[in-house]
Amino acid sequence: MTMLDIQPSATLRRQDVVAMNTNMILSNSGLMKKDLARAMGLSPQSMASRLQSKADWTIDETCAAADFFGVPLMALLDENLTPAKAMEYIKNRRSDNGNDGQLVAGQGFEPWTSGL
């Protein structure tokens, strides 16, 4: 499914927006559909149905997709998401501090000094 397959209109369903944006992010990120399906707990066939807007997305599935991509949930719901904007989300995935998004306590918060 491409953005040309679904024409923007007043009747554009959120389901279609999520499918369109998920396809866009997949194609721009180099991530695999089968890995997304696995992360969402779906079979490849079920994933294909959602990406083609033949099956509806649940809120849990949409959240799982956003988590998989490392983007805000609103990115998948954005009717005006462009490839450039999608790439910006991917480039700046949730954390840009070089530690894969893990929180690190500051100095003085070591377990032996924290009182825990």
Rank of each mutant, 00 (worst) to 15 (best):
36 L>D: 01
18 V>Y: 01
37 A>Q: 04
46 S>Q: 14
31 L>S: 11
28 N>E: 15
32 M>A: 15
24 M>V: 04
35 D>R: 12
39 A>T: 03
22 T>F: 00
24 M>S: 02
19 A>T: 10
39 A>V: 03
38 R>P: 00
17 V>N: 02
36 L>P: 05
34 K>I: 13
33 K>D: 08
33 K>E: 14
42 L>D: 10
27 S>R: 14
19 A>R: 04
33 K>T: 13
27 S>P: 00
46 S>Y: 05
34 K>F: 03
26 L>G: 05
46 S>F: 02
39 A>G: 04
26 L>I: 05
26 L>P: 11
32 M>P: 00
35 D>G: 02
34 K>H: 10
29 S>H: 04
40 M>F: 06
25 I>H: 04
23 N>G: 15
30 G>T: 08
42 L>C: 09
21 N>Y: 03
41 G>K: 12
27 S>V: 08
46 S>E: 10
40 M>H: 07
20 M>C: 12
17 V>I: 15
44 P>R: 11
29 S>F: 02
20 M>E: 05
22 T>R: 02
32 M>N: 13
33 K>V: 12
32 M>Y: 11
25 I>F: 01
26 L>E: 08
22 T>S: 13
41 G>C: 09
28 N>Y: 07
27 S>F: 09
22 T>V: 09
16 D>L: 04
40 M>C: 13
31 L>A: 14
39 A>W: 00
46 S>G: 15
41 G>E: 11
27 S>N: 14
30 G>M: 12
37 A>K: 08
20 M>K: 12
45 Q>N: 12
37 A>G: 10
43 S>C: 02
33 K>Q: 15
20 M>A: 06
22 T>Y: 03
44 P>Q: 11
40 M>S: 04
31 L>V: 07
20 M>S: 12
37 A>N: 07
34 K>T: 15
18 V>H: 00
18 V>A: 02
37 A>D: 05
20 M>F: 00
38 R>T: 10
26 L>C: 09
45 Q>S: 14
38 R>A: 10
18 V>E: 00
40 M>D: 00
16 D>M: 09
31 L>T: 02
43 S>G: 13
30 G>H: 08
44 P>L: 01
23 N>P: 09
40 M>V: 10
31 L>N: 07
46 S>M: 05
28 N>I: 04
30 G>C: 11
37 A>I: 06
21 N>I: 02
32 M>W: 05
18 V>G: 03
18 V>C: 01
